[in-house]
Amino acid sequence: MSKQRIAYERVAIGRHLTALLFVLPALLVYGLFVLYPLAVSLWGSVFEWRGLRQLGFSGLSNFIRLFAFPNGERLGGALWHNAAWFAGIMLFQNGLGLLFAYALFWSRKGAAFFQSVFFFPAVLSPVIVGALWRLLLAPNGAVEWMLNGLGLHEGRLTVLGDSSWALWILIAIDAWNWMGLPVLVFTAGLRQISYEVFEAARIDGAGQTRMLFTIAMPLLVPALSSVTTLSFINTFNQFDIVYVMQGVQGNPSFSTDTLVTYFYRLAFGAEGSVGITDIGLALALGTLLFLVLTVGTMLMLRGFERASVQP
């Protein structure tokens, strides 16, 4: 081997070592505190559990129990609430967010101001979000007073205790919390579209509404993709707002129960009348959640990639 070659090899090995050293701190922390617990959880879902003790291999029996009576009813309810949550967020948060971003895109002034105002709630802790909205929505509270004053409602406001309303109120609060994100991402996406495209369409006689659907939306597919995927992930992670506002039971009568609050009850012993933990069932649910999130996200990203057009 020539001297040059040896020197090159030495540099290459050196680079490899440096790369290893650079990745190591992050990998050590992430591996020990995220990947290892995750592996333990996934592995544990095919075992039988008594309390916190792992017993023998049990195949898919935890999963079968999860889908069977009586747990299947809870699972179905939570799944449905998560799905409704996703639909609600897509409509109220991202749909309105797109509309607002489109309006801000055309307005000359104030876009930065509105973007900041919409984003502010996102820096609040869920504990504070919950406390604030519980206060505002309480009977005799500010919202009741305003709605009554406007003639939109009469008498005591008890929406958080009403099982046909509570879920939608929480979805609205979540939309309020994160509205800034779609507004931000969509205005940024719109600014990347050349004005000439809009100008050409205007000369052809297209109005703003038509431009939104025929020009802006198709060219916004990358932005739509990230917002939709993030909302999907956020929805199936939904725990904090329910926990803070309606408790871990998803009150009233499980009408705001989500997959993660259900997981919490199974893992920490608040499910059922006796309230004992069922770790096997919890881990099966955790595995299911992991699959829903990774497969769902992958399919979504792939679908959007296929739908994207080059400007």
């Binding site: 995220v34 990947l35 290892y36 617990p37 916190l52 725990f239 997981f263 992991f290 999130l293 990774t294």
Partner: peptide, 24 residues
Amino acid sequence: LFAVLIATMFLPPIVTLIPLYRIA
């Protein structure tokens, strides 16, 4: 390695709470 990071990036933290607590 990077794929593993991406795949596990958005998992609800609560799912690994018990084993994480044990390790810590």
